[in-house]
Simulated assay, not measured.
Amino acid sequence: MRFRLILVALAVLALVALFAWQWSFGWTPEPARFPVQGLTVSAIDGSVDWPTVRARGADFAYVTASQGTQRDAAFETNWNGAHVAGLRHGALHAFSLCEPTADQVTTYLTTVPREADALPATLSLDFSPDCTARPTRAQVMTAIRGFLGPAEYHDGRPMMLRISPAFEDAYRVSAAIVRPLWGTRRFFEPDYLARPWRMWQANPARRIDGVERPVAWSVAAQ
């Protein structure tokens, strides 16, 4: 009898976990508190039906332009698609600690068009499994500033910094470089940055009609 009760309890827990897992794919912060919400996309997300995405509540899109020295294969398609659908959009570069800053700058500058009505571009700072390099903080600050200088000159405005908790913990970027901040924390507002966040990536894997795979979903601060 006791063994049967344990099996029933485990089955209930499994069902609860499955429900929570499925629920998480649809979760977004309350629109009443955060009315401006949108997504980040790259080639790995597959094809995007931009009119459908907009109809399902996206107010903006950040389109991955480059990662390290590699152009995102879907950048031009996604950039133009978001524009045609009437979504405000900006470019994102994922910074690499394993590739020369000058080469990353070249990739970014030759990929992202200069458009006055685009959202401020974003420099994404996070660790990746394919890069084990861990330079000193001084070296990282120099590299980031070396990217921001020419990229911001090209764009004509400051970039936003999207900083992961692990990267911030290692290098304390938000205290050293004053730019608009984009925090990342699932379900709970980020509290690890040195200054208030401008954007919050609240769900790294939200399912939304119009995109083949779950996408990162973010909100703007009020």
Results as ranks from 00 to 15, higher is better:
V8I: 15
L18R: 11
E115T: 14
V105H: 03
A116D: 10
R134N: 04
A121T: 09
A82S: 07
L181R: 02
P204D: 14
D126E: 08
M160E: 15
E152K: 06
R162G: 02
A14P: 07
A143C: 03
F187E: 03
T106P: 03
H89E: 08
R33W: 04
Y108K: 05
P190Y: 00
P129Y: 05
V219D: 09
W23L: 10
T28Q: 15
R56E: 15
D59R: 06
F188I: 09
F187K: 06
H93F: 02
D45L: 03
R179S: 13
F147D: 02
L181V: 09
L193M: 05
F95D: 02
R172A: 11
A58T: 13
Q139S: 12
P100I: 12
G210M: 07
R186E: 12
Q201W: 05
E99L: 00
G38S: 09
A151L: 07
Q67D: 03
V178N: 15
R162L: 11
T184E: 08
L161V: 11
M160Q: 14
G156V: 03
H89K: 15
R145K: 14
H154R: 09
R186Q: 10
A65L: 06
F167V: 00
V8R: 15
A55Y: 05
T184I: 15
V12W: 07
I163H: 06
I208L: 15
A91Q: 08
V140D: 05
P135T: 08
L193D: 12
N203T: 00
I208V: 15
W217A: 09
S47D: 10
R88I: 03
T28N: 03
L39M: 09
S42V: 02
R88N: 08
T122W: 02
E99T: 12
V41G: 00
F75N: 00
R157S: 11
E30M: 04
S128A: 06
A166I: 09
H93M: 12
A143W: 04
L109R: 02
G26Q: 07
L181Q: 08
T106E: 15
A65V: 05
I6M: 07
P158L: 11
L18Y: 11
V53T: 08
V211C: 00
L7R: 14
T52S: 05
A11E: 01
E30R: 10
